[in-house]
Amino acid sequence: MKEKNKKGRELSGLSDRTAMKIGIGITILGLIFMAFGIWRGEMAVVFEKAVNICMECIGIG
């Protein structure tokens, strides 16, 4: 494994600042994905599954 160099670059070759910018971008993209998923009704599927005892999850189904 290469060591982190003196400019603060990590194994990925990204500086901390660039990595953080990418992280912020993905965070925002995540929010957009969540909004789109809610808009197309995925939350109802999650809710339906979560309010009924999941027999498979507990090892009975």
Binding site: I24, I26, L29, L31, M34
Partner: peptide, 24 residues
């Protein structure tokens, strides 16, 4: 639950949640 449902196969809501928490 979402990827296994007959009407959705892509889980944007949960994927977005994981991206949000993971990237943050």
């Amino acid at each position: 639950a979402v990827v296994g449902s007959w009407n959705f196969k892509l889980a944007f809501y949960v994927a977005g949640f994981l991206m949000f928490i993971g990237a943050l």
